[in-house]
């Protein structure tokens, strides 16, 4: 049985998909008509964790690690193959009304709004779907419009909004029923930096105001740093790390990435850069280098003083790259 106090309790959760297997060619195609071969793939392979009321947890892992599959099981879109999931005391796969009225799943790449109409019309629709009484609806709608700075946006047809504007409106629509469990799957994907920051500060504020629990997946480390004290890292469907974000950083992100733009970039210059740090990749006029975190200031200073640098940025390596590197030497 799930922990009573936890908002989300997951115990030894597994999801196995049966995937068709077929060789290339006509012969194989003909054979598959008679006998279909499949193989079992465990997208989620025995994970356990709990999330408390009001906690904001980053859910990290490389593509295909099982994040979205887990979120779908948590929100009731997928039946687990085995193991237990409880959200607010309900088993999500039963899709009980009482639970659906209290959770939301926002997927950064999905659109649930009426494309040709102003968002206000979609808000009205959600009001009817979630049976929100007039007073509470108006209050919540105005709060969201204010917090997300939606102002005039809600009067424009959704198709006329930019990607970032649409995402903000999408988030507002998903929260009109004031859910206390939020599953956010890449909510800032494709957004510019300002818009990402806006979405982040909104999530933090919503969490503060309503005590909501948030499980967030993102490829942007900045999202995770701004919002999550705790992170769960999964890979190959298993939990690899569950704990403090600071501990994750120290453990995984030991390097820095330096992107240098050089007007006279050629093969000789690339070879020369190899003396400063590990060359990760090159583009038309820029090179991406990796250096140990401690060496980053020294290498940056040398690059700037010794080469004709047009532009230089120092950043943490993408979380996926860091995690992949760690996995390479530290199998799960």
């Amino acid at each position: 049985m799930a922990a009573v106090d936890a908002v989300i309790a997951v115990e030894d959760l597994r999801k196995v998909f049966s995937v068709p297997v077929r060789d290339a060619g006509l012969k194989a195609a003909a054979r598959s008509l008679v006998r279909r071969r499949t193989r079992e793939v465990a997208a989620v392979d025995g994970i356990s964790f709990t999330i408390d009321p009001g906690e904001v947890v980053g859910f990290l892992g490389p593509n295909g690690a099982g994040k979205t599959t887990t979120l779908k099981m948590l929100s009731g879109l997928l039946h687990p193959t085995s193991g237990q999931v409880h959200v607010l005391g309900h088993r999500p796969q039963r899709r009980e009304r009482a639970l659906l009225r209290q959770l939301t799943l926002v997927m950064g790449n999905r659109n649930q709004l009426q494309w040709d109409l102003p968002a206000l019309d979609s808000f009205e629709l959600n009001r009817a779907i979630y049976r929100i009484p007039p007073r509470e609806f108006t209050q919540m709608r105005d709060e969201l419009i204010d917090l997300l700075d939606l102002g005039p946006l809600v009067h424009k047809p959704v198709r006329n909004l930019s990607l970032g504007e649409r995402m903000k409106v999408e988030i507002a629509a998903a929260l009109l029923h004031r859910p206390v469990v939020l599953f956010l799957d890449e909510p800032t994907i494709g957004l510019d930096v300002t818009m990402q920051r806006r979405v982040r500060s909104f999530v933090a504020e919503y969490n503060r105001r309503h005590g909501a629990s948030v499980l967030l997946t993102s490829h942007y480390m900045a999202d995770v740093r701004a919002l999550c004290r705790r992170v769960i890292v999964i890979h190959h469907g298993r939990v690899l790390f569950d704990g403090d974000l600071a501990a994750l950083g120290a453990r995984f992100s030991t390097d820095k990435t330096i992107v240098v733009r050089l007007p006279d970039l050629d093969a000789a210059m690339i070879a020369r850069l190899g003396a400063y740090a590990t060359v990760l990749g090159t583009e038309a006029d820029s090179v991406t280098l990796r250096v140990p975190r401690a060496d980053a200031p020294g290498v940056t200073a040398r690059l700037l003083s010794e080469l004709a640098v047009a532009d230089l940025t120092v950043e943490d390596p993408p979380i996926d790259d860091v995690i992949e590197d760690v996995f390479a030497v530290e199998p799960p």
Binding site: D52, G54, E55, N207, H210, G211, C228, R229
Partner: peptide
Amino acid sequence: TGPVVPVA
């Protein structure tokens, strides 16, 4: 963030 207010 953390559990600052009770769950609504």
